[in-house]
Amino acid sequence: MAIDVTVRRVIPLPPERVAWYAMDWRHDTEWTQGIRTAELTRPAAGGGFGVGAEVTRTASFLGRRIDYVLRVAAHEPPGLLDMVSVVAPMPMRVTYTFTDHPRGTLAAIRVRGGPRGLLARLAGPLLSRQVRSSLGKDLRDLELRLGERAGGV
């Protein structure tokens, strides 16, 4: 596996509040780096968003357009959202976790996957740095966005 990156940030709000916003695909473009569009293209078996649902995203990464589909593998609000790519230029798994912390919520995003073989050995370190930077900005923007929403209520 080329990359396995986890980034964490304490957000001074309860996990339910952070997860409610972060787990809603309709907010992906507001706080996730590079996401241009996000659309629920397959609902969960019981309807809506949950295990089995698929979200199609169009993103920009390293100056390239990337279209991919993530299928929800686990959805346990407010603690866990785990998604795996079913259509993507390379395999990936994205896991969001939200746990209690003395100062609010410990939010974490883990991304695993990427190119394999020789390309992984050559591009893996650079790709890992880029993903780490992007995820750090995601969590920063998540906190900023939630702060704006709280201030406007």
Rank of each mutant, 00 (worst) to 15 (best):
L142F: 07
G117E: 07
A107D: 05
G34V: 04
D24A: 05
R17K: 14
Y21H: 14
P43F: 08
L80H: 09
G124D: 05
R36T: 11
A120I: 01
V18N: 01
L81M: 04
Y68P: 13
D138W: 06
L144T: 15
V7N: 11
K137Y: 10
L127Y: 08
L70V: 10
H75M: 07
M83E: 05
R71Y: 04
V69I: 10
T99C: 11
A44G: 04
M92H: 14
T32G: 09
F98C: 13
M1H: 09
V18A: 04
Q33K: 15
T56F: 09
P12A: 14
E39P: 08
V55M: 02
T95H: 02
P125T: 06
F61Y: 11
D67F: 10
V153S: 13
G46Q: 15
R42F: 09
M92T: 11
L127S: 13
T41I: 08
R9V: 10
T105G: 03
K137L: 06
G136R: 09
A38G: 01
A45N: 13
L118N: 13
H101Y: 09
G34N: 00
R132D: 02
Y96D: 09
D138Y: 03
A150Q: 12
W20N: 12
P91F: 02
I3K: 08
R36A: 14
V111F: 00
A45P: 04
E39C: 04
R129K: 13
L146C: 05
T95V: 14
H101W: 13
L80Q: 03
G48F: 09
T32A: 05
R17M: 15
G124K: 09
A73F: 03
D141T: 10
L142M: 07
